[in-house]
Measured scan of single mutants.
Amino acid sequence: KKVIATKVLGTVKWFNVRNGYGFINRNDTKEDVFVHQTAIKKNNPRKYLRSVGDGETVEFDVVEGEKGAEAANVTGPGGVPVQGSKYAADR
């Protein structure tokens, strides 16, 4: 997939743990970017499923997906693991 931007910061608008996807609002352009659970590179080690939490600040790359921009290599700011959704089960 073609990389559009790297190391972008954004805020998770919403993320559905059961369906495994959601949207991140970019801090720079204010665009909403699709995020799939497979794009989460550093999950919270205490969580079973990969997820990001609503309102969480994340860092990610933006790539060209089939339906427009989507997030890739999602981590917390500075490459730390994401916090994850409060609806995702703990280990």
Score class of each variant (00 low, 15 high):
residue 1 K to H: 06
residue 1 K to I: 10
residue 1 K to V: 05
residue 2 K to P: 05
residue 2 K to E: 05
residue 2 K to W: 03
residue 3 V to L: 10
residue 3 V to Q: 06
residue 4 I to G: 04
residue 4 I to S: 08
residue 4 I to H: 07
residue 5 A to H: 14
residue 6 T to E: 08
residue 6 T to M: 13
residue 7 K to W: 02
residue 7 K to S: 11
residue 7 K to P: 03
residue 9 L to S: 10
residue 9 L to K: 15
residue 9 L to T: 14
residue 9 L to F: 15
residue 9 L to Y: 09
residue 10 G to N: 01
residue 10 G to H: 00
residue 10 G to W: 00
residue 10 G to D: 01
residue 11 T to K: 12
residue 11 T to P: 01
residue 11 T to E: 11
residue 11 T to F: 08
residue 11 T to M: 06
residue 11 T to Q: 11
residue 11 T to W: 04
residue 12 V to A: 03
residue 12 V to C: 08
residue 12 V to Y: 01
residue 13 K to T: 07
residue 14 W to L: 02
residue 14 W to Y: 04
residue 15 F to H: 01
residue 16 N to C: 04
residue 17 V to I: 10
residue 17 V to S: 08
residue 19 N to D: 09
residue 19 N to H: 14
residue 20 G to P: 00
residue 21 Y to P: 00
residue 21 Y to A: 02
residue 21 Y to L: 03
residue 21 Y to M: 04
residue 22 G to V: 00
residue 22 G to S: 01
residue 22 G to R: 01
residue 22 G to Y: 01
residue 23 F to I: 04
residue 23 F to N: 02
residue 23 F to R: 02
residue 24 I to C: 02
residue 24 I to S: 00
residue 24 I to H: 00
residue 24 I to F: 02
residue 25 N to M: 12
residue 25 N to W: 09
residue 25 N to C: 15
residue 25 N to S: 14
residue 25 N to I: 13
residue 26 R to G: 01
residue 26 R to K: 03
residue 26 R to T: 05
residue 27 N to E: 14
residue 27 N to A: 11
residue 27 N to I: 10
residue 28 D to G: 03
residue 29 T to S: 11
residue 29 T to A: 03
residue 30 K to F: 15
residue 30 K to W: 14
residue 31 E to C: 08
residue 31 E to G: 09
residue 31 E to V: 13
residue 32 D to I: 04
residue 33 V to I: 14
residue 33 V to P: 01
residue 33 V to D: 01
residue 34 F to N: 01
residue 34 F to A: 02
residue 35 V to Y: 02
residue 35 V to W: 03
residue 36 H to L: 03
residue 36 H to P: 03
residue 36 H to N: 04
residue 36 H to E: 03
residue 37 Q to D: 04
residue 37 Q to G: 10
residue 37 Q to E: 14
residue 37 Q to Y: 12
residue 38 T to H: 13
residue 38 T to D: 05
residue 38 T to K: 08
residue 38 T to S: 13
residue 39 A to T: 06
residue 39 A to Y: 05
residue 39 A to G: 11
residue 39 A to R: 08
residue 39 A to K: 11
residue 40 I to S: 00
residue 40 I to C: 02
residue 40 I to Y: 01
residue 40 I to V: 14
residue 41 K to T: 14
residue 42 K to Y: 15
residue 43 N to K: 14
residue 43 N to R: 09
residue 43 N to L: 09
residue 43 N to Q: 11
residue 44 N to K: 08
residue 44 N to S: 10
residue 44 N to P: 07
residue 45 P to C: 09
residue 45 P to R: 12
residue 45 P to T: 14
residue 46 R to Y: 15
residue 47 K to Y: 08
residue 48 Y to K: 13
residue 48 Y to F: 12
residue 48 Y to W: 15
residue 49 L to P: 06
residue 50 R to T: 10
residue 50 R to Q: 09
residue 50 R to W: 07
residue 50 R to V: 07
residue 50 R to K: 11
residue 51 S to G: 08
residue 51 S to N: 05
residue 51 S to Y: 06
residue 51 S to L: 06
residue 51 S to V: 05
residue 52 V to Q: 02
residue 52 V to L: 12
residue 52 V to S: 02
residue 52 V to K: 02
residue 53 G to S: 12
residue 54 D to P: 09
residue 55 G to C: 11
residue 55 G to K: 13
residue 56 E to L: 04
residue 56 E to I: 04
residue 56 E to V: 05
residue 57 T to P: 12
residue 57 T to G: 06
residue 58 V to H: 00
residue 58 V to Y: 01
residue 58 V to M: 01
residue 58 V to C: 10
residue 60 F to M: 12
residue 60 F to K: 00
residue 60 F to N: 01
residue 62 V to K: 00
residue 62 V to S: 01
residue 63 V to M: 14
residue 63 V to A: 05
residue 64 E to S: 12
residue 64 E to M: 11
residue 65 G to L: 04
residue 65 G to V: 09
residue 65 G to E: 05
residue 66 E to R: 15
residue 66 E to A: 14
residue 66 E to S: 15
residue 67 K to T: 07
residue 67 K to I: 08
residue 68 G to I: 03
residue 68 G to K: 04
residue 69 A to L: 12
residue 69 A to E: 15
residue 69 A to N: 14
residue 69 A to W: 11
residue 70 E to Q: 15
residue 70 E to H: 14
residue 70 E to A: 12
residue 71 A to V: 07
residue 71 A to Y: 00
residue 71 A to R: 00
residue 73 N to V: 04
residue 73 N to D: 14
residue 74 V to L: 08
residue 74 V to A: 02
residue 75 T to A: 09
residue 75 T to G: 07
residue 75 T to W: 03
residue 75 T to M: 11
residue 75 T to F: 04
residue 75 T to L: 03
residue 76 G to I: 07
residue 76 G to T: 05
residue 77 P to D: 03
residue 77 P to E: 13
residue 77 P to F: 07
residue 77 P to S: 06
residue 77 P to C: 07
residue 77 P to T: 07
residue 78 G to W: 10
residue 79 G to D: 10
residue 79 G to Y: 05
residue 80 V to K: 12
residue 80 V to F: 13
residue 81 P to I: 07
residue 81 P to Q: 12
residue 81 P to F: 13
residue 81 P to L: 07
residue 82 V to N: 04
residue 82 V to M: 04
residue 82 V to P: 06
residue 82 V to A: 07
residue 82 V to T: 09
residue 82 V to I: 09
residue 83 Q to C: 14
residue 84 G to R: 05
residue 84 G to T: 04
residue 84 G to D: 05
residue 85 S to G: 07
residue 85 S to E: 05
residue 85 S to A: 08
residue 85 S to C: 07
residue 85 S to D: 05
residue 86 K to C: 09
residue 86 K to F: 08
residue 86 K to A: 12
residue 86 K to H: 11
residue 87 Y to W: 10
residue 87 Y to N: 09
residue 87 Y to P: 07
residue 87 Y to E: 07
residue 87 Y to A: 08
residue 87 Y to S: 08
residue 89 A to V: 15
residue 89 A to Q: 13
residue 89 A to Y: 15
residue 89 A to W: 11
residue 89 A to G: 10
residue 90 D to C: 09
residue 90 D to K: 14
residue 90 D to Q: 11
residue 91 R to S: 15
residue 91 R to D: 09
residue 91 R to G: 09
residue 91 R to N: 09
